[in-house]
Computed example of a mutant assay.
Amino acid sequence: MQQLNFPSYSFRFKNSENKVSIFDEIRKKFIILTPEEWVRQHVVRFLLEEKKIPKSLINVEKVLFVNGLRKRYDVVVFNSDGSINILVECKAPEVKIAQATFDQIARYNMTMNATLLMVSNGLNHYFCQMDYENEKYHFLPDLPQYKTN
């Protein structure tokens, strides 16, 4: 798999029926390794190891409904009170991060109401702080470190 713009992490892999799978620590199972999954697993490790977010607050690939349509978010980080701290959208490295990607995460966030947004294709990462009062968002240079309440 392609080298990504994250620190180097070690992953567990397995090969079955000529398909490589990667172990997802959050879902506690092997997932077929696609380019987008490679990015998703790096994001999860980044949140766990660099931002020190407890594993119990991270959720991966769950269904949400947006305007009555069934969608799946990539990664969500909850606050200890159950509200959503970070909503993450992952794309494969060959997918350019464009306005459509920000529109997608904005649509998801209309349902989720996250405090922070992260968009990554593994090579480029964008972080936003939501400002619901003024109906806009502010780009950040990085995600803040996790703090216990």
Rank of each mutant, 00 (worst) to 15 (best):
F23L: 03
I31S: 06
S56V: 12
R27W: 14
V66I: 11
F65N: 00
K62P: 00
G68F: 01
E37N: 02
K55I: 13
E49T: 08
F65V: 02
F78Q: 13
V66W: 06
I26T: 13
V63S: 08
T34M: 04
F46K: 09
T34G: 04
D24G: 09
K52Q: 05
K71P: 04
D81Q: 04
D74E: 15
F78G: 04
D74R: 13
V77A: 05
K55V: 10
E89W: 03
V75R: 04
N67S: 07
K51Q: 10
F78T: 09
K51D: 09
K52P: 00
F30W: 12
E36R: 10
I58V: 09
S83L: 13
L48R: 07
L48N: 04
V66Q: 05
P35H: 03
P54G: 02
E25L: 15
G82W: 00
N67F: 05
E37D: 07
N85T: 00
R27H: 13
G82N: 03
R40E: 08
D24A: 11
E36N: 10
F78P: 08
R72A: 08
I53Q: 05
V77G: 00
V66G: 05
N79S: 14
R27Y: 13
I84P: 05
N79E: 15
V39I: 09
L47I: 12
L33M: 02
V43W: 13
N85F: 03
I84M: 10
I58W: 08
H42K: 05
E37S: 06
R40W: 08
K55M: 12
K29A: 08
D74P: 14
N79Y: 13
V44K: 00
